[in-house]
Amino acid sequence: MFGGYIITVAVTIGIYIILAMSLNIITGYAGQISLGHAAFWGIGAYCSALLSTRLGLPFWIGLPMTIAITALTGSLLAIPCLRVREDFLAITTIGINFVVQAVFLYVPFFGGAMGIGGIRSPFSTSSFFWITLIFVLVCIVLDRWLVTSWIGLALESIREDETAAAISGIDVVRFKVAAFAIGSGLTGLAGHLYAHFMTFISADDFGFPQSIVILSMIVFGGIGTLRGAILGAIILGVAPEIFRPVLDYRTLIYGGLLIFMMRFQPGGILGDQSVLPKLFRMVRQRSPALVRSG
């Protein structure tokens, strides 16, 4: 239906959207800054690759197992994160990213510098597109359910004020772990899709710079909002393709874009307090929503 190039870009963006949504749960909703999200993604991808190449598990059986294992590992890695707050947390997550990547790179079980290849995908490229699209939609539904549930309310109140949340009856530790578990479960999905789409993965794909890219997506789009996560993933996912003709300046433009956005639209393109959504609200002349703010 589309050219192979377009499909590849589209699938990549679909995977980025899932990653951005999952980080948005941890950082946007629960307020736990994670600068090591690519580590969780890598855990998902490696888990999926190993299940596929070593155990020969088919796609649909590997999928729930990958999600479960990644969610579990994510909540385990959240334990060191529970001891620390704010900037200590941010840097601890960078640390986790470097350590996880080093394990992939240096432990022979994970294929070392060669990575893992020969992952078999049962689908053609274009059916992979449709599958990714369906998963993105499923994640959107999941996200909408989450923000309207008591879990979502608990996560957001922890983001607003941990102490105030605790004296309102919220078990902060439990919900932080829940945020990391749900978020990394979704990165497990993203890792599974990525491994099967690329059919070859290596530790380089999941480094700290990738974490920054994912974080930039949600900040760029408007942190704490689903629409922001999706739009951010699309824009920053497409940008490298658009700027391909000026390859030499691509990274510079990317860095400049981040500075420019933070300086002039720090809430992101679609953040609740940003210009576009305000205009939109004005045009719609909608009375302010009573419960949710945006």
Partner: peptide
Amino acid sequence: RIVPLIASIGLFIA
């Protein structure tokens, strides 16, 4: 806090 952090990372990349 995330805003100056991202700006700083952007600047470093640039």
